[in-house]
């Protein structure tokens, strides 16, 4: 303490930044190691079929209502906003295209990702954290079970597989929401609207959205499990792990989204 007071402010800040950066790199490395453990778990029997199904239900079906409502309102507000904008230069017939493209390329995957990281990421971190602090993970090990393979792998596989499916639903419902607002509230021509919706939409728009979603699912599950796995202490530790999981996975969604959009598509 006394030592620190002697140092000047700048070197303190630098030191803090340095340790923070070092920790981040270290954590990144740890997450990557966890991923490698998952990969090795993948090729060893037994297959975690039941567990994967359970997680698919948890991540997919249970998240469906949240994702659908979010997507529906996203589509609706998109239609409303772009309508009022496009009206200024008589281009309201492009609202359908704008809604469809924004939803499939960007908003569907990102909002579904954020919803899932809030809902599922927290649940995963809390569950694994609790198991960690109550020695259930140790118990797994004594029962000849690799906890990474048993707990992390199924969650990662399920989230990676299920998020694209969720996004298909989100795309559909989002487009539908936009349609309802445009046609029933704003008086767009329904035929023209549907026509425009699909005219400029391509396979690539939909598939890139789904690829993004798969990456989001993968990151959310991996990061949340990592945080749960490393929970320390009692209930407080679990709480902290949960918070970190949600914050880190939401950030991972947004950051990876930017890079995927700029590099790949």
């Amino acid at each position: 303490m006394a030592d620190e007071r002697k140092k000047n402010g700048i070197s303190l800040v630098l030191e803090h930044l340095g340790t923070t950066a070092y920790r981040m790199v270290e954590e990144l490395g740890n997450v990557f190691v966890l991923f490698l453990q998952c990969v090795t778990g993948l090729v060893r029997p037994p297959s975690e079929f039941r567990n994967i199904m359970k997680q698919m239900e948890e991540v997919g079906i249970r998240s469906l209502p949240v994702v659908l409502v979010t997507a529906m309102f996203t589509g609706m507000v998109l239609a409303l906003q772009s309508w009022s904008g496009f009206q200024r230069f008589q281009a309201t017939h492009f609202v359908g295209s704008v809604v469809a493209l924004s939803i499939t390329r960007e908003l569907g995957p990102v909002f579904a990702g954020l919803m899932v990281s809030g809902r599922v990421g927290a649940a995963m971190a809390a569950e694994l954290g609790t198991m960690k602090v109550t020695e259930q993970i140790d118990a797994l090990v004594t029962l000849a079970t690799n906890p990474v393979k048993y707990l992390v792998l199924p969650r990662v596989i399920a989230a990676t597989a299920v998020l694209p499916v969720l996004v298909i639903f989100a795309d559909f419902v989002g487009i539908l929401g936009g349609y309802f607002v445009a046609v029933y509230l704003l008086g767009a021509n329904p035929y023209l609207y549907v026509n425009k919706t699909y005219q400029y939409l391509t396979f690539t728009d939909i598939y890139t959205g789904l690829i993004k979603a798969a990456v989001f699912g993968f990151l959310i599950a991996l990061i949340s499990c990592y945080n749960g796995f490393n929970a320390e202490g009692g209930a407080q530790g679990v709480g902290r792990a949960t918070t970190r999981a949600v914050v880190a996975s939401s950030m991972a969604v947004l950051v990876s989204d930017y890079f995927m959009t700029s590099f790949m598509f």
């Binding site: 198991m131 109550t134 020695e135 259930q136 118990a139 797994l140 090990v141 004594t142 000849a144």
Partner: peptide, 20 residues
């Protein structure tokens, strides 16, 4: 270790039952 652990059984102090 995995192979060796198969020869073991352990009762934990707090039972550590899987609560799910």
């Amino acid at each position: 270790l995995v192979r060796v652990r198969r020869r073991f059984g352990m009762l934990f102090q707090g039972a550590a039952l899987f609560d799910s």
